[in-house]
Computed example of a mutant assay.
Amino acid sequence: MFNKDKVKLGIAPIAWTNDDMPDLGKENTFEQCISEMALAGFRGSEVGNKYPKDVKVLRRALDLRNMEIASAWFSSFLTTKPYEETEKEFIAHRDFLNDMGAKVIVVSEQGNSIQGQMETPVFNGKYIMNDEEWKLLSDGLNKLGKLAAQKDMKLVYHHHMGTVVQTSEEIDRLMAMTDENLVYLLFDTGHLVYSGENALDILNKYINRVKHVHLKDIRVNVVDEVKEEKLSFLKGVRKGAFTVPGDGNIDFEPIFEVLAKNNYEGWLLVEAEQDPKVANPFEYALKARKYISEKAML
């Protein structure tokens, strides 16, 4: 189905140790994490909070396991802080990823985000931007996109629950207001379905701008509970809203078909933050790898 020379399969370290709630998986080491990733059949990962910051140290650990770095999350604050602050941090982040051989930079606007707030309801408490904030965000992303292009890299924007770009309408507006040659889209199955969007519609509409993919499944019963009880994003994670492909309610076959038909190139990255004491990350990595092998022939 996919061109195996142009599509790589990776997995995120957040299943082993959660970046937003470090108590989840605090017992799991960096070495255990990447060893189990490799053992489960994955070729790469994004960068977690336990990963060495020294390029040589990180590269050696990955090379031992025939692993690569696909990308790493970057929090922008283009709507709430001076642009120069975000730019300075972005350049350092870009250069680190470039040294590690990554081709995309994952960016999510965290100005007014509620994703990290334990008590704020993720559906009821979401911030809605005004026109001035939309201009700050789009202009800032275009500038960051130019900085990424200087290193022959691409900025991929991560729509995300609890942030200012979550819904289909917000994704549409962001794509319309940014330069298609500078700002690309990270397509995340789980966050779209969680929000109540039609993931396939978004994928078909922006397939030419999708340059990075997160394969995340959801448990609909838990998402329904989050809505009904007005829970926060983080409490939803703790309750098990997310899981790996093949273990939840999303049918990934049509998604794989659209990506393959349009000759998608880049990473397909499994991501499912769960409590590792409840959902053993190695076992779930194997489950995801088996499902993707069967459904995507990858």
Rank of each mutant, 00 (worst) to 15 (best):
F2N: 10
K4P: 00
D5H: 03
K6D: 09
V7P: 00
L9P: 14
L9M: 11
G10I: 02
I14F: 01
P22T: 13
L24C: 06
G25W: 03
K26W: 09
C33P: 01
C33R: 01
M37W: 08
L39M: 04
A40E: 06
A40T: 08
G41S: 04
R43M: 12
G44K: 00
V47G: 07
G48I: 02
N49H: 15
K53D: 14
D54H: 10
D63S: 15
R65P: 08
N66A: 12
M67V: 04
E68M: 00
W73H: 13
W73I: 05
T79E: 11
T80H: 06
T80V: 13
K81P: 02
E85A: 06
E85L: 06
F90R: 06
I91H: 02
D95P: 00
K103S: 14
E109L: 12
N112Q: 12
S113P: 09
Q117G: 09
M118Y: 11
M118E: 07
T120Y: 12
N124S: 11
N124G: 14
G125N: 06
G125C: 06
G125P: 09
Y127E: 03
I128K: 15
E133W: 09
W134T: 07
S138Q: 00
N142G: 11
A149I: 13
A149W: 11
K151F: 14
K151Q: 15
K154V: 03
L155S: 05
V156S: 03
G162Q: 08
T163M: 03
Q166V: 09
M177V: 02
D179I: 02
Y184I: 12
L186E: 15
G190N: 13
H191S: 14
S195C: 14
S195M: 12
I202N: 13
L203I: 12
L203S: 14
Y206S: 05
I207W: 05
V210I: 11
L215M: 11
V222F: 11
V223W: 06
E225T: 13
E225R: 08
E225C: 11
K227F: 09
E228Y: 00
E229A: 14
L231E: 02
L234T: 01
R238W: 00
A241N: 12
F242R: 04
T243H: 01
T243E: 01
V244F: 00
G246H: 09
G246Y: 10
N249R: 14
N249H: 15
E253M: 01
F256N: 08
V258N: 05
L259H: 00
E265L: 04
E265M: 04
E265S: 10
L268E: 02
V270A: 08
A272Y: 13
D275Q: 01
P276E: 05
K277V: 05
A279R: 02
Y284P: 01
K287C: 05
A288I: 02
R289A: 10
K290H: 13
I292S: 03
S293P: 00
K295Y: 15
A296T: 07
